[in-house]
């Protein structure tokens, strides 16, 4: 199941906003059992680690880390945010 992050805005910063986005997604999204969640950052201008950390923590807790997949992106704010959150690209 692909999730377009641009639907949450083109600038994604702050922990409260990341938490709100994840909780909203949890409430309205009903993936099939074991279906992966593919996060697509296409058209998003910028993402901060606080937003992404909060967003991923909630989704990973709910669906498991392996099911939450970040689709390849060249956006350096996504790449660098993941580097500080997970300690890798």
């Amino acid at each position: 199941m692909k999730i377009s992050l641009i639907k949450f805005g083109d600038i994604l910063t702050s922990r409260p906003a990341g938490r709100d986005a994840a909780l909203s997604l949890k409430a309205y999204m009903k993936p099939k059992k074991n279906e992966p969640l593919e996060l697509d950052f296409k058209d998003v201008i910028s993402v901060g680690p606080s937003w992404l950390d909060e967003f991923l923590a909630i989704l990973r807790e709910e669906f498991g880390k392996k099911r939450v997949i970040i689709l390849p992106t060249t956006n350096p704010s996504v790449i660098e945010s993941l580097r500080v959150i997970d300690g890798k690209n």
Partner: peptide, 14 residues
Amino acid sequence: LLALIISTAGEIGN
């Protein structure tokens, strides 16, 4: 560059 500038400023301001 714009992506990094915005997210960096966002972290500090938040």
